[in-house]
């Protein structure tokens, strides 16, 4: 078997000092294989955001190992982490985070500005950005500015931006949190399509409707992983299942 894309072992993240210490993560273990579509769930305070920040190389763990694409990145400094982000991770944020003064195409080209790993000329960069926009179905709107696009379209631009450096991992943080249900479905469709083409996708969400679209749900509680998902009902969905069952009982 290939090396996993994400291999996290006994991860701790401690905030504060002395009496006031908080273990945001307390011995979390996470493994994601290449080509998987995984959701990360958990109530607020479960360490979901902290885990996402560490997976995204925006933050460093206090202890434990994190191998991203086979390389231990848990002890890298800020500049090295920036390099890892530019090469390995494509971010999709809840609030899109497009730059309003740039066109869709220029927004998509932004990550290539910081990618020193690959030497690409302006022509090649443009070609890649166009291809990424076409992949999310926005080939006709490349010159549009964010304020000329709907929320769903803006998030598609953001996904194209995440794809443009061809990273092995797409990390999405509540990607449908600011969207209506129709646009949410479109975004999830795109994720499915990318997944089918072999892209690894990790979605952090609190929305069960989004989470169930993934192959498995990693469920966090109090800083550790209570379920790696894949078999049976995820503990993170139990309350939802109960509510549905109760609702059914009530109607019967």
């Amino acid at each position: 078997m290939d090396t996993p894309i994400i291999e996290i072992k006994n991860l701790f993240k401690v905030y504060g000092e002395g009496e006031a210490t908080v273990n945001a993560l307390a011995g979390a273990d996470v493994t994601v294989q290449r080509g998987e579509f995984v959701a990360v769930m958990g109530p607020s305070g479960s360490g979901k955001s902290t885990l996402m920040n560490i997976i995204g190389c925006l933050d460093r763990p206090t202890s434990g190992a994190y191998l991203l694409d086979g390389r231990d990145v848990s002890r890298l400094d800020k500049n090295e982490l920036a390099k890892v982000r530019s090469q390995k991770i494509g971010f999709v944020f809840q609030s899109f985070n497009l730059l309003a003064r740039l066109s869709a195409l220029d927004n998509v080209m932004l990550p290539m500005l910081y990618n020193l790993h690959e030497k690409t000329d302006a022509h090649e960069q443009r070609r890649r950005a166009v291809a990424a926009l076409e992949a999310v179905g926005l080939g006709q709107r490349m010159g549009h500015y964010p304020n000329q696009l709907s929320g769903g379209q803006q998030q598609r631009v953001a996904i194209a931006r995440a794809l443009v450096n061809q990273p092995p991992l797409i990390l999405a943080d509540e990607p449908t949190g600011n969207l209506d249900s129709q646009s949410s479905l479109e975004i999830l469709e795109i994720f499915h399509r990318l997944h089918n083409q072999g892209t690894t996708i990790v979605v952090v969400t609190h929305e069960p409707d989004v989470a169930i679209q993934a192959q498995r749900i990693i469920c966090l509680r109090d800083g550790s992983v209570v379920s790696q998902g894949g078999e049976g009902i995820s503990p993170c969905l139990e309350s939802r299942e109960r509510a549905t069952a109760q609702a059914q009982e009530a109607t019967e």
């Binding site: 500049n79 390099k83 971010f91 985070n97 990550p111 500005l113 910081y114 450096n165």
Partner: peptide, 11 residues
């Protein structure tokens, strides 16, 4: 955002 996309502090 720029940092998330790979901008180093130096950039």
């Amino acid at each position: 955002l720029r940092m998330a996309l790979g901008a180093r502090p130096t950039d």
